[in-house]
Design a protein around this nucleic acid. Sequence first.
DNA 1: GTGGGTGCAAAGCCTTTGCATTCCC
DNA 2: GGGAATGCAAAGGCTTTGCACCCAC
Lengths: 149, 149
Amino acid sequence: MQLSCNNINNMRASQIVFNLQKNGNRITRTRKKIIEIFSKEDKPINAKNLLRKLSLNDDKVNKTTVYREIGFLLKQNLIQQVYIDPKEIFYESTGLDHHHHLICNDCGKIEDVVLEKDLSDTEKELEKKMKFKVSNHSLEFFGLCVNCQ
Amino acid sequence: MQLSCNNINNMRASQIVFNLQKNGNRITRTRKKIIEIFSKEDKPINAKNLLRKLSLNDDKVNKTTVYREIGFLLKQNLIQQVYIDPKEIFYESTGLDHHHHLICNDCGKIEDVVLEKDLSDTEKELEKKMKFKVSNHSLEFFGLCVNCQ
DNA sequence: GTGGGTGCAAAGCCTTTGCATTCCC
DNA sequence: GGGAATGCAAAGGCTTTGCACCCAC
C-alpha cells in the first residue's frame, strides 16, 4: 500500500522534473529533492519544515536556497500558498486533488478533506452579483480534532 | 446616509467600551480610538494600517502599543485574524455579520460579501465524517475585481 | 497610590539581497 | 565555458520583549 502510493508520487515528481528540464530549467540535486518532498507530502509545509526535511539526509542545504527554491516552484505554479496561519507561510503541491484543511486549534494538526459539494455555485453567484471573476478560493476549517476534543 | 452609518458604528464602539470597562479593563485614549477604528472599518486592517490611521490625528501612537492593543482585542475576542495574505496579518471586528472576502489579485482591493448559502451543512459533514469539531472557518476568494478584469 | 498602559530601544524571527563560488548543461 | 544555482553573511521588515515612566481608576 505505502509502496504503491510512493510509486505514484515518485512518478509525479519525475514527471515534474522532466517537464521542468524540457522547458530549459536546470535540475539540481536540491531542486529534485524539494520536488520529491512536495510530491510525497500530503500536508502543507513551510520553509522551516522543508529545511528540516532536507537536512535529515546526507548533506545540508542553506535556508537561502530553500527560500529561493520555494519562489521558483511558486512561479512555476507547482506549489501554492496555503492560508492557514497568518504568521507562517505554508505551501503545498498544486498537483493534489482540490481539497481543504482542518486545523486543530489545540494541537495544530492539519488534516486534508475533500468536500462532497464544491463551491462552483457560490463562485457563479459572486461573478453575477459582485462582478468578481473568481480564479481560486481558500476554505479552511478551524476547530478541534478527534484527539483534542 | 454616511452619518447614520457612523452613528450605528459609534454605538457599537461605545457598547464595547462599556463592556470592557465593566469587566475591569481600563479605557485609555488609544484603546478607545482603536476600537472606534475597528468598528467603523469594514475592511480588514493590519498593524501598519492601524498605526497610520492613528497617526493621522493629533498625537502619535507607538507601534508597540498598536501590537499590544491588537493582542488585547484578540484575547477579548473583539477582533479576529483574517486569512487573506500569508505575509501580513489582517484583523477585523468580530461584530460584523458573517461574511467572506473577495481579494483582487491585481490591485489588491478587498471587498466583503455575504453569501446566500452558509456552510453549516458542510460543517456537519466534517463533524460526522472526520470527527472534527468545527469552531469557525475561513473562506476567501481570489480573482479579479470589476476594474481589473 | 496602584497597577495596567505606553514609549523607546533593543532583540528575535522570518525572509530577502549581494556577491563570490560552485556545478548543471 | 557560460550562466543558473548555491552558500554565507548581512540587511530588511514585521513583531515581541525589557524596563522605566505615565495615567486611568
